[in-house]
Amino acid sequence: MTASYVVTGGGRGVGRAIVERLAGADDVVAIVERDPGALSWIDDHPAAGRLLPVIGDASDEAVAARAAGEAAAVAPLRGWVNNAAIFRDAWLHEAPAREVLGLVGLNLDPVVVGCAAAIKHFLGVGERGPTDDGGAIVNVSSHQAQRAVRGAFAYATAKAAIEGVTRALAVDYGPFRVRVNAVALGSIATERSDAYVAALGGEERERFDREIRLLQPLGRMGMPGEVADVVAFLLSEQAAFVNGATIPVDGGRSAVGRDPEEA
């Protein structure tokens, strides 16, 4: 076993794909999940002995510290992926401002807590003092950080903040050989999206497919494994000079401009 990683929200969808990609043939991955049922697949997985379930809230500092400790106890901790997210929102004119700020925190807090746990470990705070080993963090953002969707104020705000966190920490901790990057996802096919599409009627399904073709120039939704490949690259030595970047993984969604005359 050559290295270990921590992935938050690693039980389903994109998170699970990242876990499976990082585990590879030799490495260890600690998976932070609130729902034990989301990790029921681990026991039958070929890498079961190298997948460490950590049940708890990713925004809880004690849970994050436990994940770092359990991973590092098996192999040197080299990377951390902040993937955990919650899709809840509210209109600012309807909900109290403090409630909306709480919703922003649901997606921002786990990232700040995860980054803190990872950086403390990479720097050896409270253990052995700073080292030259460094490490890498990848934060999972969204196309909404730059182009908000109506009705998703709290989510879009949190994702924009996550990209700001990514840049600021890259500047603060780059001198310690800690790299911090982000991936900004477009529409990715997961169990959640598959269930949504399956529930659509024929005409609604056609409209959904057409909108995806218009929004993402590659003409389709992305696959979780495609996200996992980019995350694995950013954590690897191949990306040793990539720091403070947000990489779109969106099929060109962030590049396209809808032409009003097209219709």
Rank of each mutant, 00 (worst) to 15 (best):
G9P: 12
P130C: 08
V165R: 00
Q144W: 10
V63F: 00
F153D: 12
G24L: 01
K120I: 03
A154M: 03
A232G: 01
R98T: 13
S254W: 04
R12S: 06
V81N: 00
Y196V: 12
A189R: 15
S40A: 15
A263F: 11
A117F: 00
E163Y: 02
G244Y: 01
A47L: 05
P36G: 12
P53K: 05
V231S: 00
P53T: 01
D89Q: 11
S254L: 14
V6Q: 07
P110I: 09
I31A: 08
S254E: 13
R150D: 14
A156S: 15
E20I: 04
A198E: 15
R16W: 04
F122I: 03
A189C: 09
G201Q: 08
G186A: 04
V111W: 06
F233T: 06
I31Q: 03
V256K: 14
N82E: 12
S40E: 14
I188T: 13
G11L: 01
D26S: 13
A160P: 09
T166A: 07
V112Y: 12
W80Q: 01
Q144R: 12
L234Q: 02
Y196F: 15
F233I: 05
L200H: 11
L108H: 02
L108N: 00
V28D: 03
D43M: 07
G24W: 04
G202L: 07
V112R: 09
M223C: 06
S141L: 06
V28F: 15
A84Q: 11
A182K: 00
T157S: 14
A17P: 06
V104W: 13
A97R: 10
R78H: 13
E163A: 04
A64H: 05
D172V: 06
L108T: 01
S59L: 04
R66V: 13
G13T: 07
W91L: 15
A23G: 07
D27Y: 04
L185H: 10
A116T: 15
E33D: 14
D26K: 04
E127N: 12
I137P: 00
E204Y: 08
A116P: 01
V14P: 04
R128G: 15
P260S: 07
R128A: 15
D172I: 06
A47W: 02
N83A: 13
S187E: 12
R207F: 08
E61L: 11
N139W: 01
A75N: 08
P76N: 09
V125E: 13
V81I: 11
L103R: 07
E20V: 10
D194H: 13
L214D: 14
G164P: 06
W91G: 12
L234Y: 02
